[in-house]
């Protein structure tokens, strides 16, 4: 009982400032905005609008696609580094992990801004290439599209994706690897049959902590995405800002959370199934 009493300030803070607000926002999504007032009669109209209008479907699909690509890129790039630190760095592991996490703690806005400087019309890449005489005029296709969004977001999430993979690699009992060696597996087969399946929980965790928040990002699309790179969160932000239709914004947010959850659950099931079949 003392444990619960001690936990309660933290617990009730999260309850009051997270669970209650999310519940209220869900309720909101069943109401209607009538000019300046709220009509509080229950209606599914917002959800009907979200599911029927092509613009929302396009944004939703694009957001899921971008988030999936970002997740794949991030995990694939992060895995070898986590592996390197776990298996090949003997001393100073903590220093490596610290150096990797620093960028994650620094300002997210500034990191996106840095990418805008690099990819921009007069940016680092274009001005360098022009100076070197490789191109005659600035390349326009590098900024203001979905690729720029994928690039920027992947870079932003890399540090965060390494941690869970690293932790799961650290937990692997090294004698299992020796056993695989003794039983005749080469390095590749040993990796595929022992290391990779055992680090699967880390890969799944890394995928989820990248995939879920990526859906909610509106700053990166705003700064580097142009109109082709806009995502569902930009629409949510517009509904809570200029358009001033909060119930619709709430319905959009809840729908995207629902889709993200569905995709995540499906992903976990598939990953576990595949992981269970190796061996």
């Amino acid at each position: 009982m003392r444990g619960f009493a001690l936990m309660s300030p933290t617990f009730f803070y999260a309850l009051l400032l997270l669970a209650v607000p999310v519940a209220v926002t869900i309720t909101f999504s069943f109401w209607t905005q009538t000019y300046l007032d709220l009509d509080t009669t229950f209606t599914l109209a917002n959800y009907q609008e979200v599911w029927s209008k092509p613009i929302y479907r396009v944004l939703m699909f694009r957001s899921l696609t971008i988030a999936a690509i970002v997740t794949a890129v991030t995990v694939i790039l992060a895995y070898p580094l986590a592996y390197y630190i776990s298996f090949h760095v003997k001393e100073r592991q903590a220093l490596w992990i610290f150096l990797i996490t620093i960028p994650f703690w620094t300002s997210y806005l500034l990191r996106i801004f840095a990418w805008k400087l690099i990819l921009g019309y007069n940016g680092v890449i274009n001005s360098t290439l022009m100076e070197l005489g490789i191109i005659g005029e600035p390349l326009e296709f590098i900024l203001h599209n979905a690729n720029a969004v994928v690039m920027t977001l992947s870079h932003a999430w890399l540090p965060f994706a390494i941690l869970p993979i690293f932790v799961s690699l650290q937990k692997i009992d090294r004698s299992l690897l020796e056993a695989a060696n003794d039983l005749g597996d080469g390095p590749v087969m040993r990796f595929l049959r022992v290391t990779l399946p055992l680090s699967l929980p880390g890969v799944i965790a890394a995928s989820l902590i990248v995939f879920i928040p990526t859906i909610g990002d509106y700053v990166t699309p705003r700064l580097v995405g142009g109109s082709d790179g806009l995502m569902i969160a930009n629409m949510i932000q517009v509904q809570f800002g200029k358009a001033n239709n909060w119930p619709l914004g709430a319905a959009l947010a809840m729908t995207s959370m629902l889709l993200v959850t569905a995709v995540s659950v499906a992903f976990i099931l598939v990953a576990r199934f595949l992981g269970g079949r190796v061996r």
Partner: peptide, 21 residues
């Protein structure tokens, strides 16, 4: 797990929910 939840939630969800309330 509930207390740790904000770690994985999209920040926009936290932000709009608090704004609404």
């Amino acid at each position: 797990s509930f207390v740790m939840l904000p770690l994985v939630l999209p920040e926009i969800l936290v932000a709009i929910s608090m704004l609404v309330v």
